[in-house]
């Protein structure tokens, strides 16, 4: 079953398009990573899915309904980011209780145990928390709510390394026990890639790719060697990234659609073939130019 379905979705702010002609579908019970650089439109897209923003054109459906201002979508989804606003009049403990009232699948035991594990003071107010603690608290709500559609927008911002690890582990364990559709946005793929099933990569509001994460890892290969040989071998291939190394060396990342035979030829003419990590693929795909930051210094 499709949980989220976008068709030619566009969101315009004045003349600028935050989301441009985006089409994709998210099916049930998968963890999808929404990856893109800062300003790629991740938050805008997630807020449209959560029903916070309306779209300019195209179509967006969540649980087969238009999410904007939609009670059904609101009741079955939760949007966690560090802009979540909680009243300072309520203690953290009361906030957890209140969440429990709103979300039917709420697991108070899990919430309480996470709360204690991260050593929160039940009588504190949300405004007094540090950025990292806020993120951690919001994350507890996101996990314990167990909404059929759970959206985390940059959930780990401000968290220390240990807490991040704990969070992803907690997310995975709870997901295994209670499968649900989870969207996780991040600009750091390496941190989340292991727990993702699918990746949706966007750049300037447009979809670059949407595929299972394992396929992304075989999406491209890196070729390095003498610049002339590399450029000759890659001349009829789709290059994603190029970098010159040393005096006459170069490293080129190409889309992996070559046959084994091709690769053997490359080896035989002294080129080195390597795999490219998903993180690097994403960086290359989303970079402004094919040369990356080096372009600036040339």
């Amino acid at each position: 079953m499709k949980v989220v379905e976008c068709k030619e979705l566009t969101k315009r702010y004045g003349k600028a398009k935050a989301i441009n002609n985006l089409s994709f579908e998210l099916t049930e019970n998968k963890i999808t990573g929404l990856i893109g650089r800062n300003g790629a439109g991740k938050t805008t897209l997630l807020k449209m899915i959560a029903g916070y923003l309306h779209h300019t054109s195209g179509d967006i459906q969540v649980f087969s309904e238009n999410p904007f201002n939609n009670l059904k979508v609101s009741a079955n989804s939760i949007f966690i980011d560090n802009g979540m606003s909680f009243s300072p009049s309520l203690t953290l403990e009361e906030l957890l209780e209140t969440s429990g009232e709103f979300y039917p699948n709420w697991d108070q035991r899990l919430a309480k145990r996470l709360f204690d594990y991260f050593s929160f003071n039940p009588l504190q107010s949300h405004v007094n928390l540090s950025k990292g603690m806020k993120s951690t608290f919001n994350m507890i709500i996101g996990l314990a709510a167990r909404c059929p559609l759970t959206i985390f927008d940059e959930p780990t911002s401000g968290m220390d390394a240990g807490t991040r690890k704990d969070f992803y582990r907690a997310l995975l364990k709870d997901y295994i026990a209670h499968p649900r559709t989870i969207i996780l946005s991040s600009h750091l793929l390496s941190e989340v890639e292991d727990i993702l099933e699918e990746i949706l990569l966007i750049k300037n509001g447009e979809k670059l790719l949407h595929m299972p994460i394992e396929i992304l890892k075989e999406y491209s290969i890196g070729i390095s060697g003498k610049a002339t040989a590399v450029s000759e071998w890659t001349s009829n291939k789709e290059t994603i990234f190029t970098q010159s190394i040393g005096v006459d060396g170069s490293y080129v990342v190409i889309k992996n659609d070559c046959s084994l035979r091709d690769l053997e030829i490359a080896r035989d003419i002294g080129l080195e073939v390597s795999s490219v990590s998903a993180e690097d693929v994403c960086t290359y795909l989303t970079s402004k130019t094919k040369e990356g930051i080096d372009h600036v210094f040339n």
Binding site: P88, L90, T91, L123, Q124, V127
Partner: peptide, 12 residues
Amino acid sequence: SNKKRHRTPKKM
């Protein structure tokens, strides 16, 4: 100011 200032809800 309740929104910003550090104040415990109980005091209020």
